[in-house]
Simulated assay, not measured.
Amino acid sequence: MTLVLEAEKLCVERSGKRVLQDITFDVRAGEAFALLGGNGAGKSTTLLTLLGFLAPAAGTVRVNGRAVQDDVAAARAAIAYLPEAAALYGHLSARENLRYFLSLAGAPSSAEAIETALDSVSLETAARANRLSEYSKGMRQKVAIALALLREAPILLLDEPTSGLDPVAIDEFHALVRRLAGAGKSVLMVTHDVYGACQVAHRIALLRKGELVGRFTAPENGRIDTEVVHAAFVGRQAA
């Protein structure tokens, strides 16, 4: 299977301190992959390195087979990044936000394409003309994902995507991520949510204090065992 994201023996230092040590993992085409860890595990540092904002002290990161540091622009062009708090404008509607940000990216889309993207994330039609200041966080997340889809980037990086969402919105988000992976998108979800990772991911890598300490793979037509991953997450058993 084609590898779209790779970290190989990755070491990263910040402020003179080693925060990632010999990290190796990969994300395949059409796969939902979760990088799971608590606060301070090194998840955000990994994302920043994949996006080219941090340079490895050792090892390498590759996007579509090419080292990120060799062509940062090409790496970022292949990735749609969804931060924990998407920077959308509250005084604009969903449609207006999409049109505006797509124009900034030099990738304007037709009204039909925008509606199709909003359909794909199940944003209610009646809400699309409303200001985002009236939206719940879950609705704002849907708009941000629609923007990522309209950019037509093959890789999605999701940073704590369900933080602050209610249970219904979380279930909707998980279903959306599974649909996206099923449609061929490659999804890397960085999260501390054990349940969410097990619900969504084909594979999970467990990160603790800058080191990978566990790997888990979903059985065919099944999901990763939440209890097993939770026990490893809290350190009750070897991962």
Rank of each mutant, 00 (worst) to 15 (best):
D119V: 02
A239S: 14
D225T: 01
L20G: 05
M189F: 05
R236D: 14
L176Y: 06
Q21W: 04
G38T: 04
L157N: 09
V177P: 00
A77C: 08
Y195I: 00
L123C: 11
A146H: 07
Q141V: 05
L51H: 07
I23K: 00
G37F: 12
P154W: 05
V187E: 06
E160F: 12
D119T: 03
F233V: 03
G235Q: 13
A55Q: 15
A181K: 01
L149T: 10
L132K: 10
N39D: 13
A117H: 06
G30Y: 05
S122D: 15
A232P: 11
R18T: 15
K142V: 12
R208C: 05
A127F: 14
T45C: 10
T49S: 01
E134L: 14
A144P: 11
A239F: 09
A231W: 01
E115M: 06
R66M: 09
D159R: 02
K17W: 02
A113L: 05
A32V: 07
A34M: 01
T45V: 15
A183N: 12
A78M: 03
Q199F: 04
I155L: 00
S110H: 08
F216S: 08
A94K: 12
S136H: 04
V143A: 12
T125W: 09
R76H: 02
N64V: 05
A41D: 08
V143N: 06
N64D: 11
I155Q: 00
L20F: 11
L35C: 03
F233Y: 15
E134P: 02
A87L: 13
G222W: 06
G65E: 09
A74T: 12
R223E: 07
L48V: 00
G164P: 10
Y135M: 12
R28Y: 11
D166L: 03
R203I: 05
L188A: 13
F25Q: 03
A232T: 09
